[in-house]
Amino acid sequence: MRIGTRKSTMALAQTQEIARRLKAAAPEVAVEIIKFETIGDTDQTSKLLMHGGKGGAFVAEIRDAVRSGKLHAAMHSLKDMPGNEDTPGLVIGATLPRDPPTDALVLRPGVALEDLRRARGKGFKIGTNAVRRAAYARRLFPDIEVIHFRGAADTRVRKLDRGEMQRLPGGGETGPADALIMARSGLERVGLADRIAHDFSPREMLPAVGQGIVAVECAAADWQTRKILSLIDDASAHLSCDAEREVLWVLNGHCNSPISGHSTIDGAEMTLTAAVLDEDGGAFIEVTRAGPANRPRELGRAVGLELLDKGAAAIIARTRVEP
């Protein structure tokens, strides 16, 4: 089985975990990992919106290889997969058990968490490329300056430690950053969990839809591959995947929309919380609902529709700008 993945350290670690699980579940299946250098990997300066969001930057090229038959499957971080558009001919054949979905704060050496809290961010620069993280950061630390900061997880931490300036889209520089907001699971994957100064609770910073879930995508008509992938599918993660992505579908959210969503399962019940923010974190709408865990899309649809009823469409429209 040929599985496509990005070349980054984290993506390779995730794909190697898929291969390990496949070999354990189906020893007769030979797994070959095919590495791709996507446009999002080669262009470390532009905002992802310029490439069609995370989907265009990190997903599109590998998806095309699956559609053409060059690959049997592709590894994606679920949070990078567009949820507001149809993907004809493709299906998520498996999801791995969910890693910690929360966000974390990484500080530059010499910067203390108490200094940041005491100053409420005044005079501090926090780096992120995610509009959701930036919006929540502005709510938590009203006086911070959020700066554009891109790169692979390990690369970003190195830039932070060295006090490097970050190139801006269109020219110029910003920085250096005093802190970064990153996914806890990503830091764990690249062996940098010890750099976490603070774990944001979901109440402080609701995770991105699908954050912490590794998805394996394949052709919908390739039943042999789907059968093999089903052997490593984690049912709970897949239910969460379906519920959270349904919210994106209902909201028609795009890559510049600060939308968050996270579900938990307790026995036969699922609880789903989703939120929509504007980019400065001022406008904020959040909805929580519970329902049967085996009907995730219905729950996601109900949450999405309630967000629309409360005015989410207007917030999303304000963030829908041209590249």
Results as ranks from 00 to 15, higher is better:
3 I>Q: 05
6 R>Q: 12
7 K>G: 15
8 S>G: 11
8 S>W: 13
13 A>R: 09
17 E>S: 04
20 R>M: 08
20 R>I: 07
21 R>T: 00
21 R>K: 03
24 A>V: 04
27 P>T: 02
27 P>C: 07
28 E>N: 12
35 K>M: 12
36 F>C: 13
38 T>R: 02
38 T>G: 00
43 D>M: 05
49 L>K: 06
52 G>Q: 00
54 K>H: 09
62 I>W: 02
65 A>K: 03
79 K>N: 14
83 G>S: 06
91 V>M: 14
91 V>A: 15
98 R>M: 11
102 T>A: 10
102 T>L: 04
106 V>H: 07
110 G>F: 07
111 V>C: 08
114 E>C: 07
116 L>H: 10
118 R>P: 09
128 T>F: 04
130 A>K: 03
130 A>E: 05
130 A>H: 07
133 R>P: 01
144 I>Q: 08
144 I>M: 06
154 D>P: 15
156 R>A: 02
161 D>Y: 15
164 E>V: 15
168 L>D: 09
173 E>D: 14
174 T>Q: 05
180 L>E: 02
181 I>L: 09
187 L>E: 11
187 L>K: 06
188 E>T: 13
189 R>N: 15
189 R>I: 11
196 I>Q: 03
209 V>F: 03
216 V>T: 12
223 W>I: 03
224 Q>K: 14
225 T>F: 10
231 L>A: 12
235 A>E: 11
237 A>F: 01
238 H>G: 14
243 A>G: 01
244 E>R: 01
248 L>I: 08
251 L>Y: 04
253 G>Q: 05
262 H>G: 11
265 I>P: 00
275 A>M: 06
288 T>V: 14
289 R>A: 14
292 P>D: 12
293 A>L: 08
293 A>Y: 11
297 R>A: 12
300 G>I: 13
301 R>F: 07
302 A>G: 13
307 L>R: 01
308 L>S: 07
313 A>L: 04
314 A>L: 04
317 A>L: 09
320 R>P: 15
